[in-house]
Structures are given as C-alpha cells and as structure tokens.
Write a protein that binds this DNA or RNA. Structure first.
Lengths: 330, 330
DNA sequence: AAGCGCGTTGCATACGAATGCAAAACGTGG
DNA sequence: CCACGTTTTGCATTCGTATGCAACGCGCTT
C-alpha cells in the first residue's frame, strides 16, 4: 500500500483546494460548491483516487462491515442463503466479512471479528452457540440469528414457523393414511429441531397418534444414512418418515430405495424441511416445508440496518409462515 | 463504537505505562520486558481491551483482508470451495471479505473492494471477466484465479488439468464401446469449458471418432435440462453424453430418465466434471473427474500469501492432475 | 568508580480521511 | 456602497495504533 496509494491530499494539491474539500466531495450532503466538486472529481479521476474505507471507518465509526458466520455450507440451504445475504448487504452499502466456524472455536473467531469493528453480526447454521450472541449484544452491536430462535432479548431472530411446519407434515402423513410414523432429528440442541419435532408430535397427537420410531442424525448426511439404515433394519418398518431437513432426507431416501429396495412413497413416505432447490429434482421430488431464503434474508437485513441506524433499539423475532410443498415423496 | 470502545491509551493509563508499551505488547517481536507485558495484559484483561484492527491496518499497511469473489453458489462445487478457502485464510490470520457479483457489475464491486485495502483477491466461478484481474495486478495486489486460467502474466491460476480430464472421459466412453457421443458445454467463454471440450475432442479423434451432437447450457441447471430435452428429442439419439460439469449432469440425467424413460448407463452413458459430493449419491452415481477443492484451496492460499509476503513476485499457474472417478453412470 | 553496551521505555509523529469552528467569499437588499 | 445573511472554504484536530528516535537504567568490564 504505502507507496502507490493516492491520498486525498494528493488530489487536493492537484485540484488546488484543501484536503477538506476533497473529503466533502465524497461525503453526501456536505457543503461543497458545484465548481470545486467538479475540479476535485476531475483531479481524482486523473490520479485514480478512491477514498480509503479503513481511514473513513476509523473517524466516522462506520466500518460498513457486517460479520457473517456459518458453521457449514454442505446443506444446500445455506449457500443459497449466503448468496442472497451477500447481495442484499452489498446493495445497502455494507460488506460481509465471512467466518466459518465449528462450535468450540467460536470464542476466538468472535474476538477477531470484533477487532474489525463490524457494525452487525449475522449468525447462520442452527448449531452456533447462543450466549455468543448475547455477548455481542452487550457490546452494542446488533445481532441477527438466521434460522434459529433464542429467548435472549438482545438478539434478533428470523426463522420460519417451524412448529407449524412440523405440524403440517404430520397432518399430511395422517391424511394420506400413514400409521407407523417415524422422525429423524437434526441437532438436538437446535431450536429448529425442537420446534419441528414439537409441531410434528403435536400434529400426530391431535389425531390420537404417536411416534413409531425416532433417531437423531445431527443434520448430517452420512449420519442420516446410518440412522435410516438402522431404522429400516428391523421387521416393524415405519411407513412414513419425517426427516428434520431436506439435506438429510436425501440420504434417507437413498437408503430406503437403494439399500432396501423400498419404493417412495408406496412403501414409505418421506418428508423433509427447507425446500432446497434439489428437493424439486426428479429423483427426489420431496414433499417438504418451504423456507424462503429471499424473505429470510430480506427480513434479516432490515432488522440489522434498522438497529444500526438507531431506528429501533429492542430486538425482534420474526417468524415466517410455513408453507407445505407437496411433491410425490409424501 | 465511539463510546464503549476501550483504547490502548486506557489500558496504558491503568497499567501505568505508555501507550507504546501497550502497542508493543500486541506486536510480536517488539521490545517489551516480561514484567510490563504482564501488567499490560492484566490491565487489558480487566478492561476487555482488544486492538482495533482498522487502526492497526492503517498504520501498518496490513489490513489482513482478502477479497473473495464468486459469481454464484448454486453449483455445489463452489460452496465447498468457499468454505475451505475461508477456513484456510482464517488459519493464516487473514479475513475473507466476500463479494457476489454477476458479470457486468464487476467494475463497481472491484472498486469497492479496493477501498478496503485488501491485500489479495481470490476469484472463483468460471464466468468472471479476466481483464479485471489484470487491473488489480497493476495495482500491485496479488490475484488468484480459482478454476480458471488466463494468460495474463499478473494473475496466479489454480485449476485442474481440464484438458486431460476431458480426454479421460473420452477414453472411458470409447473403451466402453460408445459410438454416438455428445457434449454439453458450459460457458463458451470460460477456460474450463474450452479445455474440457478440447481434451474431450482430442481424446475422441485419437480414436478416429468425432462428436455426434453438441449443445451449450452455460453451466446452468435449467438450461442443461432444456438442452438435453432437445438433444434427445430427435430420433438419432446419442449413446453417451459428456456434460461440462456435475451440476448440469444431474439435470441431464433427470431428463434422460424421467422425461424420456431411458436407462443410465444402459441406454446412455453420462459423465460430468468436478466430483461434487452429490455425484456420489445413489440416484446419480456419476462418473466424473475429481477436482480436489482441498488441494485447490491450499495451493491458492499459498500462492497468495507468498506474493503478499514478497517471497515471490511473478505469478504462477498451477495445474492439478485430473483424476477419473468411475461410478456407474458411465 | 567510570565507561560501555544492551535491553526498555516514552515521546512524538504518522497513517488517511472526517468534521467543528472561524474566516472568507458570495449574494442580496436597502 | 455598505451591512447582513448565507454558502464555501481552510485550519486544526481527531480516530486508535505503530514505530523511529533519543533517553534511560541496568549490569558488566577494566
């Protein structure tokens, strides 16, 4: 940097104005006459000048940086979310600083992210610790949890109505005459799993039914395959399985068909959650609950920017309506 | 920021030392005695002090920021790459600033990214313009192109040996007795497509064969489905199709089986490129060419950091060996 | 005890842009 | 032509940290 970079002072010299004038030219709403502005811009153009965002951030306290944390990107729901989040932030003039972090090493990561004076924090992947969100809240930087809810009053949450979503799947199973209904859970500690399972069980018991079998696969593809293999290994097979997300549901369907030669949905109905793009693909045609990543992103960014701009202080939780997408798998 | 933030001066006051001493405590290799270092760290701990990375970046010229640009994340190869890139950069003390950008709006994005004084630039997705890389090279910031090659002397490139990869697929088709061989291209302007297709054609003509049909789907899932539908609509069907990447190959397989009721590989062999995780899933079992995202990432980060640290000035191109992964689709 | 050298320390300044304040330029009306 | 109000402008300072330089202290030698 040191050598080649052109500073506002350089531009000022060339344009025969003060450094302040240059600064004001690039500050919307500042007091500069049209003529000096033009001269500054011409000089800037000639030198290839661009204001140093870091210096600007220091003095204005506006880094325009937003930290975005994900635990993993394998589940296809998250890349989509990330892509949209990125574009939405860019459009509003913010810049996403991306962090990937498994549970456990979060403390270090959060410290480093705070070093960069980020103005907000977006947390995705259901498995991130939540007292971390609390800590940031204390420091006064707005936090949005995506696809996860906690009762902490400092964190904003955007999630789909997982309870209702689970219930919709239960009703679908019941209506299509399924009797032996199983559930394969995601991460037991996540709010998404808790709510989806809660809604699902509530839906079943509303019709006087209860779970036939249950397993847990931690939102992991290969674990889901293993759990499904076990679940179908006995002789009292389920005739329907609700899998806590699409990504695991794909693994389950693969086991059901390839390993056990069973048909979906004739022998077993399968349902997932998320409606990732792959759920609509021919081999799966997965019945699922849609979580619109566009809508989630939009809401998250709004919550964040409102707090940054000081338009609102208290955190909010937005629960988006669950929409059942019926395809052939159930 | 303004209010709550604790500065090195605050720590200095509490520890009864100068601000310099605090700074030196956090600068590896600086001259501080053990005793003052301890006092500083104690005071810092008490106040919850952390050095401001932005201020530090300004003066040292080391922002420790790396810009990472992707055009899209739908093709599952890219999220995997991104995740690994992120972790690798984090491990080396760098922080990825993520930008999503379609071709066309790149200029604006690049300008904004340069404002943040990034120390390096990673470009992924085969469809990014390449004179952009040139421009950054001129500004003296190292550039690495992932999964794309250009002949510009300022840009580092890391890609698999796409030519050989394409050739391997051709040989596989020939060896398994395929006669009417088709190709579905990705983006015509991308080096990946050029090389894969080139290698593929070379492989065919080495056995005195030539292409039976050709279409282009721009690395896009739905376009691939459309192109496949057209290609199989006539009465002189191909008996093998090489699709320029896995992501499109899935769409093609879906059309082949669901829309036309043909069997893979009995009626038509299908091959892809990338070996994304989904290629190993039961419904696809796709024969493909592996590009190891770990190895690509590793090489890219090394190239970048070497140039940043000034250990090397000239750019390099690394071509990773192509590995044929044979599954049941071909 | 004086002299030398090395490891520490603080002072002052720099990085590059934003901004409060006062001075200067401008424009208007009397 | 002057007085007054309204922009425009520049000066100086600020953000938080790093670093060259000079001063300092300590231990060791002669």
């Amino acid at each position: 940097m040191g050598k080649g970079s052109i500073t506002s002072a350089d531009v000022a010299r060339l344009a025969n104005v003060s450094q302040s004038a240059v600064s004001r030219t690039y500050t919307p709403g500042a007091s500069v006459s049209k003529s000096t502005k033009e001269r500054v811009l011409a000089a800037a153009e000639e030198l290839g000048y661009r204001p140093n965002a870091l210096a600007r951030a220091m003095i204005s306290g506006q880094s325009k940086l937003i930290a975005v944390m994900f635990a993993y990107l394998e589940n296809q729901f998250y890349p989509v979310l990330l892509e949209q989040m990125c574009r939405a932030l860019q459009d509003k003039g913010y810049h996403p600083l991306l962090f990937m972090t498994e549970t456990g090493k979060q403390d270090e990561v959060v410290r480093r992210l705070l070093d960069y004076q980020v103005q907000g924090l977006v947390l995705a992947s259901a498995t991130l610790s939540s007292d971390l969100a609390t800590r940031c809240g204390e420091l006064g930087i707005p936090v949005v949890l995506l696809n996860r809810e906690i009762d902490d009053p400092v964190a904003n949450c955007v999630a789909s109505d997982n309870f209702t979503g689970g219930k919709l799947i239960a009703e679908r199973f019941v209506q299509t005459g399924r009797k032996k209904i199983a559930y394969i859970a995601g991460d037991e500690n996540s709010s998404t799993n808790r709510d989806r399972e809660g809604g699902f069980l509530a839906g079943l018991s509303a019709h006087g039914m209860q779970l036939h079998a249950r397993g847990c696969a931690n939102y992991n593809h290969s674990e889901a395959a293993r759990v499904a293999t076990e679940m179908l290994g006995g002789d009292d097979l389920p005739d329907a399985i609700f899998v806590a997300n699409d990504y695991m549901a794909f693994a389950v369907m693969d086991v059901v068909r390839s390993h056990y030669g069973l048909r979906v949905p004739e022998d077993i109905a399968i349902a997932g959650y998320d409606d990732v793009p792959e759920a609509a693909w021919a081999p799966y045609q997965l019945t699922t609950v849609r979580q619109s990543s566009e809508v989630m992103t939009e809401n998250a960014v709004t919550l964040l920017t409102e707090q940054i701009d000081g338009k609102r202080v208290e955190a909010r939780t937005i629960r988006l309506p669950a929409e059942l997408i019926i395809r052939t798998s159930a």
